[in-house]
């Protein structure tokens, strides 16, 4: 799997092509969301809703062969696109890599400018939830190892 920063840099260059055109950027994010693998309807429970998001975002995670895999969906296309960026970065990574990840791509692509403060807070909540999953998996692994 590519390291976290390599994927972040790829995202930054992809967004650079859009040249700050707001409409193209929003279309692009929605398009990314449309490509996100479909989440199982039974996983869309209240327990799996990420708290702190304006839109509804469902997130699940599982650990397979030491790597974390996330699935997500949202009731809005734009949010689905945003969460797909995080999934692209974090899927197949180890819990440690997720916990240690320093996400800088949002600033580089000027995310706050096109999603606003409220959505930026929601985005931060998604990251927090993903890191919490990673922490849980790491702790579980460590306990099992002892």
């Amino acid at each position: 799997m590519k390291p976290v920063d390599q994927i972040q840099n790829e995202i930054i260059s992809e967004f650079a092509v859009l040249d700050g055109d707001m409409e193209m950027t929003v279309f692009y994010i929605m398009e990314l969301g449309q490509k996100l693998p479909v989440m199982n309807e039974v996983d869309k429970t209240d327990d799996n809703i990420v708290k702190g998001c304006q839109s509804k975002v469902w997130l699940t995670a599982r650990l397979e062969n030491g790597n974390v895999y996330f699935e997500a969906d949202s009731n809005t296309a734009i949010t689905k696109g945003l969460v797909s960026l995080l999934i692209r970065i974090f899927n197949h990574q180890t819990p440690e890599a997720i916990l240690n990840a320093d996400l800088y791509f949002m600033n580089k692509i000027g995310m706050e400018r096109f999603i606003g403060t409220q959505r930026s807070n929601g985005f931060a909540a998604m990251i927090k939830q993903m890191k919490l999953y990673a922490l849980a998996f790491k702790t579980k692994k460590e306990l099992a190892g002892e």
Partner: peptide
């Protein structure tokens, strides 16, 4: 089939 937020976001981009 389209959430109001998505319409609002697209309109804001314009």
């Amino acid at each position: 089939g389209i959430h109001p937020f998505d319409i609002g976001q697209m309109l804001d981009a314009r």
